[in-house]
């Protein structure tokens, strides 16, 4: 049993069932309509059911198949890379691009296997200035550069 859980087919099947089921559940709030005048719920309901069926088929296949690949998840890169993006999103409006970019680089650097502090400092400084010059000044992306109220 232990092996089936990490089997990729089993997990993908479970994921399809989960996501498809979610769409089916929510789409029950929408009007189904008829085949002529399809309502907003028609397409998602049909597609969601398809996803669930495919997911179930994958699960069945995983249970009966003798082989199967195993998935290994590394959480560290994901945590810091995605965390860096969240930090950027949170910091941009109040603190401006320069600070937000530097914070993003700092957090992202924890995702890699090696770090040298002076490298990170240089990279953060260089990229935040480059970002401000290229994106905001040259290409005109409307975003604040400096912290609010400065």
């Amino acid at each position: 049993m232990n092996r089936i859980i990490v089997n990729t087919d089993f997990l993908s099947g479970a994921l399809f069932v989960l996501l498809g089921g979610g769409f089916v559940l929510i789409s029950r709030n929408y009007d189904l309509g008829t085949a002529v005048q399809m309502g907003p719920g028609y397409f998602p309901l049909v597609l969601g059911c398809c996803a669930v069926l495919i997911g179930l088929a994958l699960i069945v296949k995983a249970i009966f198949a003798s082989d199967g690949e195993h998935a290994h998840f590394h959480l560290r890169p994901g945590f810091f890379v995605l965390g860096a993006m969240v930090v950027f999103a949170l910091a941009l409006r109040p603190l401006g691009l320069i600070v937000a970019a530097a914070l993003t680089i700092l957090v992202a650097s924890f995702a890699g296997s090696e770090r040298r502090w002076w490298e990170i400092a240089l990279l953060a400084a260089g990229l935040s200035i480059f970002g401000a010059l290229v994106f905001v000044e040259a290409l005109g992306v409307p975003m604040p550069i400096w912290p609010r109220g400065l």
């Binding site: 860096a84 993006m85 999103a89 993003t104 680089i105 995702a111 990229l127």
Partner: peptide, 10 residues
């Protein structure tokens, strides 16, 4: 990778 990440965010 930090550079790609930053440019993606912007």
């Amino acid at each position: 990778f930090p550079a790609i990440l930053l440019f993606c965010c912007i």
